[in-house]
Structure formats: C-alpha cells, structure tokens
C-alpha cells in the first residue's frame, strides 16, 4: 500500500485536470477550439499507427540532441577557460553578454537564410540557446571553486590534469548539471522556433501544418510528443545527476526531483 500511495498522489492532479477538461468539452465549451482529451488520445494512437509522425519526431529529436550536445560542450568549454583566465574574461565577457542578450527568435530567420531550411539551421539555433546557458553555468562554477581545494591538491603534488580531473570537474559538477537541466527546455524551444520559421519536417513543422488545417487534435499530438521528449531527456539527466552528485547534502533522502 505504501508503495502505491505515492503513485496515486502523483497521478491524482493529472486525472482531475484531464477529467475536468473532458467534462468541460462535453458540456461547457466547444472542443473544436481547445480539443478534448478522449479525441486527442484516439488521434494520437491513430497517428502513431500511421507512422509518418515518427519521422518528424526523429528529426526534431536529432536537431535537439546535436544542438544540445554541441552547445553544451562549446559553452562549457568557453566558460571553463574564461573561469581560469580572469584577464581574458574581462575582455570577452561583455561580448558574450551582448550575444546572449540577442533574442534568438529575432535572428533565427538570418540563421535559416544562412544555413538553409534543413537540420543544420535548427541545430545552429539550438546551439545559440544552449551555449550561453552552459557558458554561464560553468563560468560561475569555476569562479566559485574554493581555492583551498586546488591548493591542497597541488601541495599533494597533483599536476594540472589531475587538478582538473580530480578537483575542478567534481567541484563544478553541480553547476554543470544545473546548466544541462535548464538547457533542455531551451534546446526544445530553439528547435521548434526553427521549424516554425522554415522547415520541411519535424514536430514543429507538424504542429504548424495542423494549425494551418485547423486540426486542434493534431496540434495537441505534436505537443504531447514534445513534452514526452522533454520528460525523457530530463529524467535521464536527473538519474545521472543523482548518481554522480550523491556526495551533495541535498541529494540525500527526499532530495530534489526533476
């Protein structure tokens, strides 16, 4: 019973909300404008059976993953280097601030004109969003490292690579995971922006088509798949995080979920 109770607790709000929506669509408002859970569900099943939507989901998935990984690696690397090079950072930081302040939605058309309407332009937009988040996460992490930790390791005879591997990376791991978690949702938004502006495939393209055809169920199916994608990515990172950061006080029993 004790194992089942939390599951019921977790699902109860969803049941209430979806139930209210379903009833509302039956009696209170017109489901043609907001959709109806039962219809959305049957449309989802039909679309998944038909199969074409899997290709759209796969394309969006790869846009997100490529952009996410490349953006995280490059942003993290730049943040890492600048964290240890305060003089260089003083020169470069204002430029990074300016570039990060540019609304990516505003320059997305330029990126698409430059890179075409294929996957490259979407990956580039995702990178432009993830890069800055990871940059600031890692940069501030490196700047906050307790100097005593590095001193101790060096007194013990650790060389540069050992200091980085045994001290710096573990010390900033919480910042890295924070950056990775916030980046996911922005990576998804980046890919969708790109697909909304110009694309021939992808879940954003699918949603755009559905809305053009006044297909409310289609829009919701696209949204559901995107949410599922975010959920899988976030959960995966959460599991890795709890494993890697089990030394952190807040990772003990009752620690933060996703």
């Amino acid at each position: 019973m004790n194992r089942v109770t939390p599951i019921i607790q977790a699902l109860l709000p969803a049941v209430v909300i979806i139930g209210a929506w379903e009833l509302g669509a039956m009696f209170a408002f017109d489901p043609r404008f907001v959709g109806q859970p039962s219809q959305i569900l049957s449309y989802l099943v039909a679309e998944l059976r038909r199969g074409a939507i899997w290709a759209d989901a796969a394309i969006t998935f790869w846009e997100i993953m490529l952009g996410y990984v490349l953006g995280a690696l490059s942003g993290g690397a730049v943040g890492f280097v600048l964290g240890f090079r305060p003089r260089l950072a003083r020169i470069v930081e204002p430029y990074i601030l300016i570039f990060s302040a540019i609304p990516k939605i505003a320059i997305a058309p330029i990126i698409i004109i430059a890179l075409g309407i294929g996957i490259q332009s979407k990956v580039a937009i995702v990178i432009s969003m993830v890069f800055f988040l990871m940059f600031y996460a890692v940069y501030s992490g490196v700047k906050q490292i307790e100097p005593d930790f590095i001193h101790q390791a060096r007194i013990m005879g650790a060389n540069r690579a050992e200091v980085i591997g045994y001290i710096v990376i573990p010390a900033i791991a919480p910042n890295i995971f924070d950056g990775l978690k916030t980046s996911i949702i922005f990576a998804v938004i980046g890919a969708l922006i790109g697909e909304f502006i110009a694309a021939r495939a992808g879940l954003g393209y699918y949603i755009l088509n559905a809305s053009g055809a006044f297909n409310i169920n289609g829009i919701w199916v696209g949204v559901i798949l995107i949410v599922a994608l975010v959920f899988v990515l976030t959960t995966t990172i959460g599991i890795v995080e709890r494993r890697v950061l089990r030394w952190l006080p807040e990772m003990g029993a009752g620690g933060n979920g996703i």
Binding site: H151, Q152, R154, I155, M156, P170, W247
Partner: peptide, 17 residues
Amino acid sequence: VNTGVAYVPQGRGLFPW
C-alpha cells in the same frame, strides 16, 4: 608550490565529492 609539506587548511578540509 611546496610538495614537501602537508597542509590542513582552515574550514572544512576534505574534498566533499
């Protein structure tokens, strides 16, 4: 850096990770 010494710093000493 003097690797001929051992050093116990102020504050929490061990690497938390």
